[in-house]
Design a binder for these strands. Structure first.
Length: 691
DNA sequence: CAAGCATGTCATACA
DNA sequence: CTTGTATGACATGCT
């Protein structure tokens, strides 16, 4: 019988879904067991009537009874809710209700204050119901009736439908960006959130809210934020609060990437997509914003995948959903911070391709320049979808995949390096036929080894200049450009890299560099003798018939062939092998040092970015705290006003202290019509029950 | 001349 | 075992 019932139930579900899709509203409630039973009761995963079995039979797949498919389960619940809600308006009804009850003696009020964290400044004037019960009333009364469950809801659409009543106290508090230790009550949190809802969102609220809007639309529409704050700031404040929340909840994301983390989800949820600040700033964002959108979209996918079964799915989705706004806010923040130099900078930025990099430092102030590079680098990295949490790891990863090329490295140490042009690289590869293969093969990889973080800052021209392999000389030449970047100006290695450590240079390199350009060969020979390395001198002394470059850079097979071609003594062979070993180790040491510097560079960059991020978070935190205080004050004033009106209506029989405001399940705000001793006793009794 | 830096070299470990 | 690579430690030359 049970199985038969199940069979019909699932059949009904399918039919209802199909009919609903066709536009026909079907109420399957009478034919279905209570939803709670489906969810929690006999159909629990541990019982024989697991609901996943229902789905196993639905689509023909067979799942292990213990492998509960939560996705399908919640999808089922959503579909069921949807089907059920087709016959009635599915407007989330906010169950926020406020009423006044009699204020008992001071002791009781004190106790209730302790429970709910009444307004600090109200001095016991307002008594707010226990937050847990309030949550039950708000969430359980209305939304949970629709089957919403904050845990396990994966879809963003559900999230958007999730009103604040879906969250428990902590969620709401966190959502409001409040710390745990704050004495801010749950109602204040809700009002804080509510106050940031646009009017159309308010229309989704309950009757009580509507009434309040009708009675005092201005007051209700007006956010409870401080009047000192600009009207556009609530959104930013919320985003900042959300950033704080995310930083607390997910410290792993606190990395550089966290700077792109904000409240967007909430922004969309609360309908702030058309917030004026977005409109005002959107025209300034242009390509940066698009880049951020793309990057955030990619992150959305990955984040959703990683958080599929996460307990904090709601908030994760919210954060991912709003990445766009987060980037938005970041860009806005950046634009606002750079507003002082906006005109000049904008013009320069528009001509960025043609602008000389060395002009950059003069165009931006130190702080602005730092921020700009941070933002731009973040966006660029995010756009490439390669932005890892640590540039260090990125560098190391690249290092593992790259190989070295000693040939190009030797170029940088050539005696003629000071006057050599970038063409030396190509000429070297063309002039050395046998070794060109190995050098050119490994050369492009070499370029990816070392200065990767810096190369991201380079222009296209410089990148093109690096084609053909890593050329330290290019980096030396670009060194002047690097130094324009304030981020790297302090690095000693950039300042010293221009030093001409030309001792111990292979002779063959200088020969290959300018085979036709040097007319005076005798002079060149003198220079070679003077600047050649110990190995080269020894090679010449031992009459080694080929160059050190060949010895070092030839592949093993060709190297062995070369040795076989010539009749060499044992000493010569030993020297050749030593030269090869030392040469390769020399290049390895250079690469190793370069990597080390890059790692340090990346770490330094990350530290700076994290410092800036921390400073910004602290700044936002202080701003939020200030706005919260102001809102509290406003709310207190509002209460005073309401009480004064009530006293007038009651004929001045009751004092302000005789009223407390409560919020409940009904859809209207209620106040006791009189403050008799009976109500006083009732209130006291209720309070005792709570305790 | 000492300090700091860049570079080369060696020894060693590892793939 | 050979070869190549990576890296710490030390030496050396330069500023």
């Amino acid at each position: 019988m049970q199985s038969l019932k199940k069979y019909f139930s699932e059949g009904l579900i399918q039919v209802a879904i199909l009919l609903s899709l066709a536009g026909i509203r079907v109420d399957v409630d009478p034919y279905l067991p209570p939803l709670s039973e489906i969810i929690q009761g006999q159909s629990s995963a541990l019982t024989q009537t697991q609901f996943h079995n229902l789905w196993n039979s639905l689509d023909g797949h067979s799942l292990h009874p213990k492998s509960l498919d939560l996705d399908r389960f919640f999808t089922t619940r959503r579909l069921l809710r949807w089907v059920r809600s087709l016959d009635h308006l599915q407007v989330p009804v906010a169950q926020l209700e406020t009423w006044l009850v009699h204020r008992e003696s001071d002791n009781s009020v004190t106790a209730m204050q302790g429970q709910a964290g009444a307004l600090e400044g109200a001095d016991g004037l307002v008594d707010i119901e226990d937050s847990a019960s309030l949550t039950m009333r708000m969430g359980g009364g209305g939304m949970s009736e629709l089957g919403y469950n904050p845990v396990g809801e994966e879809n963003l659409e559900d999230l958007s439908r999730l009103s604040r009543s879906q969250m428990d106290n902590e969620d709401i508090k966190e959502f409001a960006g409040l710390e745990e230790d704050t004495s801010f009550s749950i109602e204040e949190c809700l009002q804080l959130l509510e106050s940031n809802l646009p009017l159309r969102e308010q229309q989704h609220l309950g009757d009580a809210d509507v009434k309040r809007v009708e009675e005092d639309p201005l007051q209700y529409q007006r956010p409870l934020l401080s009047p000192l704050l600009p009207q556009d700031e609530p959104l930013l404040d919320l985003e900042q609060q959300w950033q704080d929340v995310l930083a607390i909840m997910d410290p792993e994301d606190m990395d550089v990437d966290d700077s792109h983390f904000t409240v967007g989800g909430r922004a969309s949820e609360t309908g702030h997509m058309d917030n004026p600040i977005h409109q005002d700033t959107s025209r300034h964002q242009t390509d940066l914003l698009r880049c951020s959108q793309i990057s955030s979209a990619s992150r959305d996918i990955s984040k959703e995948d990683s958080h599929q079964s996460n307990h904090n799915q709601n908030i994760s989705n919210a954060s991912s959903n709003i990445d766009f706004h987060l980037n938005d806010s970041d860009i806005i923040d950046f634009l606002l911070s750079s507003a002082t130099d906006s005109s000049a900078n904008n013009s320069q930025n528009s001509n960025g391709s043609s602008m000389e990099e060395q002009d950059l430092p003069s165009l931006f102030g130190p702080h602005l320049e730092e921020d700009m590079f941070e933002e731009i680098s973040l966006l660029d990295l995010a756009l490439e979808n390669e932005f890892s949490q640590s540039q260090v790891s990125q560098n190391v990863e690249q290092d593992h995949t790259d190989s070295d090329s000693g040939l190009s490295l030797d170029f940088s140490q050539s005696p003629s390096s000071p006057c050599r042009s970038e063409s030396s690289c190509s000429s070297s590869s063309s002039s050395c036929s046998s070794s060109s293969m190995s050098s050119t093969e490994s050369a492009p990889e070499e370029g990816a080894i070392g200065y990767t973080p810096i190369k991201e800052e380079l222009t296209d021209e410089e990148d093109e200049g690096a084609v053909g392999g890593y050329n330290p000389e290019q980096h030396k030449m670009c060194h002047t450009n690097y130094r324009q970047l304030s981020q790297f100006q302090h690095l000693p290695w950039l300042e010293h890299i221009g030093h001409n450590h030309t001792y111990n240079q292979p002779q063959c390199i200088s020969q290959r560099k300018f085979p036709k350009q040097h007319s005076n060969e005798s002079l060149e020979h003198d220079v070679q003798n003077k600047l050649s390395s110990r190995d080269e001198k020894q090679a010449r002394a031992m009459k080694i018939p080929f160059s050190n470059d060949h010895i070092i850079n030839l592949p093993v097979e060709e190297f062995n062939e070369l040795l076989a071609k010539h009749r060499l003594s044992e000493d010569q062979l030993t020297l050749i092998r030593d030269i090869r070993r030392r040469g390769k180790n020399k290049m390895a040491a250079q690469n190793c040092r370069r990597r080390k510097l890059d790692i340090l560079l990346g770490l330094e960059h990350n530290v700076n970015g994290l410092r800036r991020h921390r400073a910004r978070l602290l700044r936002e935190k202080s701003e939020v705290s200030r706005s919260v205080r102001e809102m509290k004050q406003r709310l207190n004033d509002l209460y005073q006003e309401v009480y004064s009106l009530l006293r007038e209506e009651q004929g001045m029989f009751c004092s302000v202290n005789d009223f407390v405001m409560q919020q409940g399940n009904s859809s209207h705000m209620s106040f006791p019509t009189h403050c008799s001793s009976q109500s006083r006793r009732k209130s006291g009794k209720r309070q005792k029950e709570k305790e």
